[in-house]
Design a protein around this nucleic acid. Structure first.
Lengths: 363, 363
DNA sequence: TTGAAAGCGCTAACAT
DNA sequence: ATGTTAGCGCTTTCAA
């Protein structure tokens, strides 16, 4: 009745209803495929909507229906192919069901993550995905009390907040070191960042240390390449430092493929043969690992699969198919390359794709 | 009065108000820094909110205040460092002022872009940023009629929808070819994708063709490497095809650094010296360009700057500082590397950072 | 500095 | 198949 003094903002359902000679409830129904509306009526309504340039207001619908169709997600950086792949897997799985991913990045900073999570929760997402299992106490509280499914990824936290889709970074590197030690390597270095900012990087180093200790090997060859996450360039600089200080090193395990590739280029610049003179391994199975000369021996953590599984889990949790939190274990796979040779073994393969999900009685 | 039968959903402002013994209007004021509220009252309110675990509902606020604080943005792919950089520039500029970027990716598909834009507009963003200047007719209409600032990026469209922050991909490549021709190169190939899906890639090829024609050179050395955007691996395969079919090629200009790096690795595999036997140039100034051996000669389109400028422009448009659409020209910069040698010239430098923005009487 | 009333644009719930 | 009523949780507006 007070409606549209013309130019009082974009047209609303009431405007469309008036133009089509029906009630706005009928318009509401016609705009969704499900509801029962006479086909002629619907056509007239869609026509009127098109003529008026009507655009559905999801904000109003969300408020009333108590469904925003938002799924929040936080990643450390948007500029990382691994996390981008996870977001792709997540988005593709959720978009098909009408959900929209509300993405934010934390810049590898837990305080920033806290701010971001707080901001995202104000949008009333129906579920939230975070990267990693380490958060500020307040972030944990916010997530735990949000009353929505929470999925931690890229880690296997000791005390999950809710569900988990991830793997142990420490275990993955430990297993890799085991393989190299079995292959005869002894003087092994770890090249990573110099701070605990990147918790996954820190976990990988922990796995290295644990493995070396287990095998009774000297784990003092730790090269810090700068503030995590370290770039290709920093990887190269760190490799230079390593070659200067510990030239007898046989193998360098890098916190990521980016660092590993940088390290490889440093060897190329110095004319050192990889893997003959010094071997290099990475982590992440980035594109570069498969195309560099030599290719990089690395670990594939199935980033896209992580996103896909998280989406699947969330959909199940939201429609009631899945009840209670779940722990979905991803099994990272060693991908042998030319940068660090390993004798044949089980090695390659995509066992992960068919892996069943473990579901212990989660917290 | 009907309020909270306990457990009837998350606490609302009314709950906080009751707990603090004030009206919900006072809570609303206390939760924003601006409004005038007695300091003791505010403290009591914040305390009550914390105790109750109150989380502000941005959906309700958006509906009433007619301000969502959303800025929509679409990029072709989340898995591309160039676009990721633009998103970073954009997000950083906007988050500082309380806006949240609502991001979607089109997968380099105009029909997908249309769906995405339509979906994003339903969220009532206060401005929208899209990548490129080519869209479906319907997308153009939707954007033009949305009644919000529209910014097209990474291109310099002939008929902008609203504002623009970008550059001519064709001109950038043409200028690069000019430099190479001046340096004596004649048998020059272009390595790109095989479809028009990636409009920026197509524009770059167009710039190549135009330049070759201008110099009276044979522009038939066109190598298609697969569905755009082409990967490092596809770049390598395309280079292999080129080396087999046109082994006398002196220089290969690649649609992106990723393709260029792939091409470089193919040469390494074949023992061909780059740049001595064959020279390679890329586009994008990705990280790989600065660290590969040799480094890549490339063009820096200042991706982050594009995002930063778009954010700046949007803020100005929203607060009225800037009126009407603006065209912000970004000046891509040739970055000489080792993969294709050029005689010294103006070449390097960061002229762009200080560039003033052109503001013709835009449409 | 605080409060009361009204309503943003939609849809749940109930009618017919 | 369609309509009526009410109200989601905030903020605008006006008043005190």
């Amino acid at each position: 009745m007070t409606r549209r003094a013309r130019g009082a903002g974009p047209p609303t359902m009431a405007d469309v209803a008036r133009a089509a000679g029906v009630s706005s409830m009928t318009v509401s129904r016609a705009l969704r495929r499900d509801a029962a509306v006479n086909e002629e009526t619907r056509a007239a309504i869609l026509d009127a909507a098109e003529r008026l340039g009507y655009v559905f207001d999801a904000t109003a619908a969300s408020l009333r229906a108590r469904r925003t169709d938002f799924i929040a997600a936080t990643i450390p950086s948007i500029n990382n192919a691994n996390f981008a792949d996870t977001v792709r897997g997540l988005t593709d799985g959720l978009a098909a069901r009408g959900y929209q991913v509300l993405l934010g990045y934390t810049n590898y900073d837990m305080a920033e993550e806290e701010r971001l999570v707080e901001q995202l929760l104000r949008r009333r997402p129906e579920a939230i995905v975070v990267t990693g299992g380490r958060h500020t106490a307040r972030t944990r509280t916010l997530l735990a009390k949000a009353g929505i499914p929470v999925v931690e990824t890229w880690d296997l936290p000791d005390e999950p907040i809710g569900s988990v889709v991830g793997f142990s970074n420490a275990d993955a590197v430990e297993a890799m070191v085991d393989r190299f030690v079995a292959a005869g390597f002894r003087r092994i270095a770890f090249l990573g960042g110099d701070a605990a900012r990147d918790t996954r990087g820190t976990d990988r180093r922990r796995g290295f240390l644990r493995a070396m200790a287990k095998h009774g090997l000297d784990a003092a060859r730790l090269i810090a390449g700068g503030t995590p996450p370290i770039s290709m360039r920093e990887g190269a600089a760190a490799m230079a430092a390593l070659l200067d200080r510990l030239p007898d090193t046989e193998l360098v395990i890098c916190v990521s493929d980016l660092a590993a590739f940088g390290a490889l280029t440093e060897c190329q610049r110095r004319g050192l043969a990889v893997p003959e003179t010094i071997a290099i391994a990475g982590f992440g199975d980035y594109d570069i690992a498969g195309i560099s000369v030599p290719t990089l021996t690395t670990i594939d953590p199935f980033p896209r699969e992580i996103g896909r599984r998280a989406a699947e889990l969330i959909l199940g949790l939201l429609d009631g198919t899945v009840t209670g939190p779940r722990i979905v274990a991803i099994m990272p796979q060693l991908r042998p390359g030319g940068s660090a040779l390993l004798p044949d073994a089980d090695g390659a393969g995509r066992a992960n794709a068919e892996t069943a999900q473990k579901s212990p009685s989660a917290p």
